[in-house]
Structures are given as C-alpha cells and as structure tokens.
Nucleic acid binder design. Sequence first.
DNA 1: CATGTCACG
DNA 2: ACGTACGTGACATGA
Length: 524
Amino acid sequence: MGTAIEKNKQKAVGQNLKFDIPILARHGINLDDFHADTMLMSYVLNSTATRHGMDKLAEFYLNYTTVKYKEITGTASKQINFSAVQIDIASNYAAEDADITLRLFNKLNGLLKDKPTQLKLLKEIEYPLVHVLSNIEMNGAKVDKNKLADHSEELSKKIEDLSKQAFKIAGEEFNLDSPKQLLVVLYEKLKLPILKKTPKGQPSTNEETLQRLAEEYEIPKVILQYRTLAKLKSTYTDSLIRIENPSTKRIHTSFQQAVTSTGRLSSTEPNLQNIPIKTAEGRRIREAFVPEKGNVLISADYSQIELRIMAHLSKDKNLTHAFNNNLDVHSATAAEVFSVSLDNVTQEHRRSAKAINFGLMYGMSAFGLTRQLDIPRAEAQKYLDTYFERYTGVKDYMENIKAKAKEDMFVETIMGRRLYLNEINAANGLRRQAAERAAINAPLQGSAADIIKKAMIDINGFLNKEMPEVKMIMQVHDELIFETPKNISEEVLLLMKNMMEDAVKLDIPLIAEAAIGINWNEAH
DNA sequence: CATGTCACG
DNA sequence: ACGTACGTGACATGA
C-alpha cells in the first residue's frame, strides 16, 4: 500500500515540512522521510540573511512577490477559513506554494552544491531532527490543571493585596502594569532618583533599578513583588491552562528550527524553554508539569557544556585539566584567579569565578564584570588579567576567533554551522564590538546546540525502535525531558544519560546529569 | 506595531 | 563622552 507521495518520499521537497507532517498524517499519509526542506536549506546556508518563511525566501532568492495568505482570507474580524476561499483563487494560491518551493529548491541546491560541510549538517542533523521535533511536539507534555488553577487563584489574591499597598504609598491608584504610569508616580510624584534610563531615554523602572531604589524606599519593594507574581500569573499559570489541547489533554509546543542565529531551537505557543526555576514561587510552575499515571519524568542536562566546548576549542591546558579530572570548574577557576588552594576556595570566590566564566563566554569587558560583581573597575580588571595569565589558551582563542571572524566574516561551530557577522568590521565601534562578542559566543552556544541535536536524533531513533513507551517531551537548550513508565525508569535514565554523553567525541568528556521525579521540578 | 519588562539557557 | 554579557518569546500598554 502507500500513496504516491509515500512511494516517492525520497524525492519529496517541501518548505517547513514539520508543519506538513501531522497534517498529512491526519489524512493517512506517513511522510517519515523526505529529500529536502527549503526552509532548512536556507537556514544552513545563512541563518541571518533573511527570515526563512516562504514569502521572505521568494523575495530574497527569487526576487518574486508571493500572494499572501491574508490577501485571500482577509484579516481579523473579516478573516475567513481557507476552505471558504473561492476555489480558483485557492487553487492558484496553493499551486504557487508548490511552484515556488520547487524553484527555491533548485536555487538553494545550486548554492549548496560546493558546500559539503553545510550539506552534511543539513542531511545528518537538521533533516533527521525534523522527525524528532515532530515526535516531541505530538507527544506533548501533561500539566496538572487543578494545581495551576489553585496557584492562579492564590496569585490573584496576593497581586490584589500588593496593588493596594502600592496605591496607598503612592497616594493614588494607577495601572501598575504600565511602565509609563509607574515612572510618573516614582520619579515625578514621589521624586525618587533616576538611576537608569531605557534605550529610548525614558527613566527605567526595571528590576535592577527598583532593586537599588528598594535599599532606601518602600514602594519599589512592593512593585518588585507585584511584578514577579503578575508575570507568573499572566505568562504561566493562566496561559498554560488555556493552551492545553482539548483532545489530547496535553500541551503541544511548536519548536522553531530556523529562527536563532546560533543554531539553537526556540519554542513557541507556548514557550516551554522559559518555565520558571530560579525562585521557589516560580518552581511551583514546574511542579505542575507531571507524568500520566504509572509514569515518571526524567530530566537530563549537560553539565557546563559551553565551558567544556570552550576547553575543547581553545585546547587550554588548565581548563582541559579541570574537566578531565572532573573538578568543579568554577571552584578551579576561583583557585587560579584568587591564588588559593582548591580547599580554600570560599563561596564568595566561587561566585565571582562563576561570573567570570560566564562573562568570558559572552565576551564581557572589565566594566561588565564590575557591574556584575559590584566591585571597583580596577579590581575587575585585575581578575580578568589574572584569569588570562592562568588560562593563556583561552586568551589566544578569544583573540584568534575575533581575528578569523574579521577575515572570514563568519564563525563556525564544531559541526560547521556558520554564523555570518556582517558588522564584524563596522566603523561604528558599538556595533563592531557587539559583533565581536557574538563571534566569541556563537561557536560555544552553537556547538552546544549541534551536540544536543545529535543526541536527540540518536535517542529518538533508539526509543522509536526499542522503547516506544518512552516519550521525549521537551528540549530546553542543554536539557532533555522524558516521560517513561516508572518500572523501567532507572534503566531509561542510564540509557539517556549515556547517549547524551556519547553524542560526540571531544577532547574533554561530556557529562549529563539526570534525575527522576513525579514532576519536572523534582526531576530537575 | 513599538516599547518596556522579565521568564529561561 | 559613551556604552558596556550571548541567545530567545510572551505579555501588557499605548500610540
């Protein structure tokens, strides 16, 4: 059996096939393989040249203006269903889609012909990943709606109470959700000092500013609490309840595979990659992510993957040594930078070293470290100088990557994914420096993305074949979450951990940390 | 539709 | 003198 499209699947060419796969599936067509996806061809060629939707690709690569969906269905209140569009107009639109996709394929295929590395990335990573992401999206994640609703109710009460407190101090009622109204109250009525302005020159009311004002004034504290809780309610508790699929009773995110400049995925409607974790109140949201009865959740995340990649790419002896000996890398850095023995590293040392390690991967300056650690500029400079004395490989790597970026106009990940940096030689110093920071960060963030994608492909292949009762349900950049029957969970944990650690072979070991729980918070 | 803010890695 | 740490997405306001 099998339809014509199934029989010829190795010749199938599409634009964003992840979108088409479940639709075809609903009509009994199983597209488990395909020849090419123009969206991903464009993404691998140049992640930032253009957006990778068909309309933009047609403009960019074919200089052709497509008929827009909204032109034939109308917008907003006047919008009609595609099935209600007049048949000749609908067929013309659909035919154009197919025509343009094939023309894009021919064009992009020509551009990729002499680029074996990008072709390999496309065929070995991005194409296989389409099916993995499709699986994860269809699996979905279960949430405890009652738990979320109770939490929402509780938040409502606290939010109302905090508003009243704020209004009392302000001496008037206003919209706390409006930064514009808030700044009038804070800076004009109550005459608090303006410590920081927004990019547009407006006095800022952001968290950092309010935190500093809170040392001396009462109302910023109340507003900070209000903001935290209002955010949790609007973005998480309320919206997760609303977005549950009524037929599957689960939450189905959509992964974007051609959005980020570095090769990471992103997640939309809902975004499952920014579920709170940093505060206790926030972690209650994670407690609402639960398994079906009889199942448990497993979370497995790569330990310090970007720093490990920095050790691999820079070949720095000191950093490599730390990972080869499974040291706590921030403590090891603290020992070097503050010239103390590992045993004498304090929590404060470690905290500073952690800020240095993270800052370095973002191309941070001494000034940035000053702000982060709230220390004098000279001291921050001293820390960085000492760091680069002890980690000369890292220093050379940073300098070399910037120089190479200026020459090539792009940087690459371990799998040859390129990020073009158009402003790396810009005359505007601010823009040039921003590009230099991106040059440092992209190979680290992007290689980490390459690695977890490879792990996902390996794991999905294994699970579909050997353990179809185990579901991969989320990816959060360096973390994978699985739902598995409880009775095999210990075995699954070890298998997943090992497959993540073995996804690629680097000069340093990769470590994945995994745990089992009855909700996401407990598993993490 | 831009702006400000804040949730995550 | 200025701005100063990478990459995302969602929500609310207000023009």
